[in-house]
């Protein structure tokens, strides 16, 4: 079977599975979030009521958009404090069999923000930094709650379209509780068991030593007590030569974190190698399950949207736009990687795909996955806000690496993260109908709601916040010694690494071009700020739009109303998304992956 056919079949299988699941799952999400009685609400009613009673929540209380936003912000601030304190106090807390010391203050700040914002950027190495209690009670809990927060915001925005002359958009506490209790927890439990069946580990054992067949000599980088690499006067890592026949195998409650890592589009690996690690992602089947899990809820939410607004065609239109963007860019990544490196080809190295070799660019990829499954994973993880990786994006070809970078820069909406994908594409839909309205000279409408100056101001804040943070952050990093210190690959690739880091942080993705040494005070602080503002400023703007739309009356559909479910609208939506992405990022991309591509191909 040719490599291209393998990629096409794998992609088609994954997409067919998630699209088949979109209808039942999307319907289920609409039911539980709107409190329409179904089997889950009946089974969980007592537990749900108990949670409300213990937390002092009045489930019948409706909130204005600003109260909803303030509740959300306070909830996430509290989550950030808990994750920070768990890291700083972990040496005195239980479930730390390796007796790992406290995480440094700057890294703890960065990680707390990363997990609260659904980014899961990891400047640290999990197996040598985080105690089991920190991983499970801090990071995994935030994996659930940050995904639930995103879903709550999406449902609140959809209510903005469905409600008429309403001052409220729902109850944040109820939305977070229901999305965690009825969606994320049961799905994660199922996936965790399935992953354990494939060999993903789940235990609280201390790390195990295995004796290897051969002796191994390697240069081991020295670290300080906080786990940061020691550098010499020139800034190079200090290493010591070590010969050993002992390999330490890290253990831990991995499967339970792995499942929500994918389903919640979080992406924070239990281990530093993330889903490339055999204890996180051991087989081709576990890899298939993980890719499908990343895409599952975001695609299903388009159906939820259709159900809630009473016109499923509206959801299908958004799904179609997401699918087209995803399929095209995933194919570009695969073609770039399978095409291989011209530098190697010019030296007579055979990089063609045959029955006995994968060909193409296998640097940074696991042989058990190959190029097709690695390229598809890279596209899935950056088309959503996941950020898990099963290959090293830094080792991709320039145009292969361009794909994850650009998918994030489009706003992670093809299909996007849990909740974030649907609310981001809805903001672009609002912008699209506004542009169309300007062209035909008619007041723009979307789903019966007039789009006016206030909504456009809020949409502009939403759309401009992230590029501003990303580009300013990148500029600051390349101009300051703190930012330059982390670059091991000066030139176009080093610039790509910095741009990727801030793009990943600003869009709450969390994947990395791993060549950048980012566990420094500069990057921990700057990326932390970008992650927080890149998450919560757009969320506040989204909730403000929800409140504004909910307060409006619904205007009747007339012959002059632009249909928002056909091919014309899908094209308009895709055009708007690509145009905004290109306008924001082309100059930066030209300095990074594009120039690197031409340098590489021009040299041969």
């Amino acid at each position: 079977m040719s490599a291209t056919l393998k990629f096409a079949l794998l992609g088609a299988l994954v997409l067919a599975l998630v699209i088949l699941c979109a209808k039942p799952l999307g319907h289920y999400i609409a039911d539980v979030m709107e409190g329409r009685p179904n089997f889950a609400l009946r089974w969980g009613a007592r537990l749900e009521r108990w949670i409300y009673r213990v937390c002092g929540i009045d489930a019948r209380e409706e909130m204005s958009w600003s109260r909803y936003a303030i509740g959300l912000l306070v909830f996430n601030l509290a989550g950030g404090l808990v994750v920070y304190l768990l890291q700083r106090l972990q040496q005195w807390l239980p479930f730390n069999p390796q007796q790992l010391p406290a995480v440094s203050a700057d890294s703890a700040f960065n990680t707390a923000v990363a997990f609260v914002t659904n980014t899961d950027w990891q400047g640290y190495s999990g197996e040598s930094t985080m105690a089991y209690l920190t991983q499970a009670a801090g990071l995994t809990v935030q994996n659930f709650l940050s995904a639930a927060t995103g879903l709550a915001v999406a449902i609140a925005l959809i209510r903005g379209f469905t409600r008429r002359s309403s001052a409220t958009i729902g109850n944040f506490w109820v939305d977070v509780t229901r999305s965690s209790l009825y969606l994320l927890l049961p799905l994660s439990a199922l996936l965790a068991v399935a992953l354990m069946g494939q060999g993903v580990i789940q235990n609280l054992h201390s790390y195990r030593d295995a004796t290897t067949i051969e002796k191994l000599t390697f240069d081991n980088p020295k670290s300080d007590s906080a786990g940061k690499p020691l550098l010499d006067a020139k800034g190079n890592p200090i290493t010591e030569s070590v010969t050993t026949q002992i390999q330490t195998l890290p253990m831990g409650p991995v499967a339970s974190q792995e499942a929500i890592k994918e389903l919640g589009t979080n992406g924070g690996g239990f281990f530093n190698a993330n889903s490339a690690h055999p204890f996180e992602n051991p087989t081709a089947l576990s890899n298939f399950m993980e890719i499908a899990a990343i895409l599952l809820i975001p695609f299903a939410l388009t159906y939820t949207f259709g159900v809630m607004v009473g016109d499923r065609r509206q959801g299908f239109a958004l799904m179609a736009a997401m699918l087209i963007l995803f399929a095209v860019l995933a194919a570009v990544a695969f073609v770039s990687e399978q095409g291989g490196n011209p530098s190697l080809a010019s030296q007579g190295i055979d990089a063609t795909s045959t029955a006995s070799q994968s060909g193409g660019n296998m640097e940074g990829k696991e042989t058990r996955f190959g190029i097709a499954a690695s390229a598809l994973f890279a596209a899935a993880t950056t088309a959503t806000s996941c950020g898990a990786v099963n290959s090293m994006h830094d080792s991709m070809m320039p145009m292969g690496g361009f794909v994850p970078l650009f998918l994030m820069q489009l706003g992670e909406l093809a299909p996007g993260g849990v909740g974030t994908g649907i609310y981001t594409i809805l903001i672009f839909a609002i912008l699209g109908v506004f542009i169309a309205g300007l062209m035909i000279g008619r007041t723009p409408e979307y789903l019966g709601k007039k789009i006016q100056a206030r909504e456009m101001k809020l949409a502009s804040i939403f759309i401009l916040t992230t590029p501003t943070l990303v580009l300013l952050g990148t500029a600051l990093a390349v101009m300051t010694s703190g930012g330059q210190a982390g670059v091991f690959n000066p030139g176009a690739h080093g610039f790509s690494e910095i741009l990727y880091a801030f793009t990943s942080a600003g869009n709450n993705n969390g994947s990395a071009f791993a060549g950048l040494s980012a566990n420094t005070v500069f990057y921990n602080v700057s990326l932390g700020i970008v992650m927080w503002l890149g998450r919560f400023w757009p969320i506040v703007a989204t909730l403000a739009i929800a409140g504004s739309l909910a307060a409006k009356k619904r205007v009747p559909v007339t012959e002059g109303t632009m249909p928002t479910h056909g091919a014309l609208f899908i094209s308009l939506l895709i055009g708007t998304i690509v145009l905004i992405g290109v306008l924001n990022y082309v100059p930066a991309l030209a300095l990074g992956p594009v120039v690197e591509h031409f340098m590489l191909s021009g040299a041969h």
Binding site: S66, L77, Y84, F109, R454, W537, A544
Partner: peptide
């Protein structure tokens, strides 16, 4: 050092809180 990062976290919260308050007062400009 902890106080520095806790204050920074609080500052980020207040920056988001402040945006919510500002947007509540944002008119439609018409």
């Amino acid at each position: 050092m902890d106080i520095v990062y806790l204050v920074l976290l609080l500052g980020l919260f207040l920056a988001s809180f402040g945006l919510a308050l500002a947007l509540e007062r944002l008119g439609d400009g018409s």
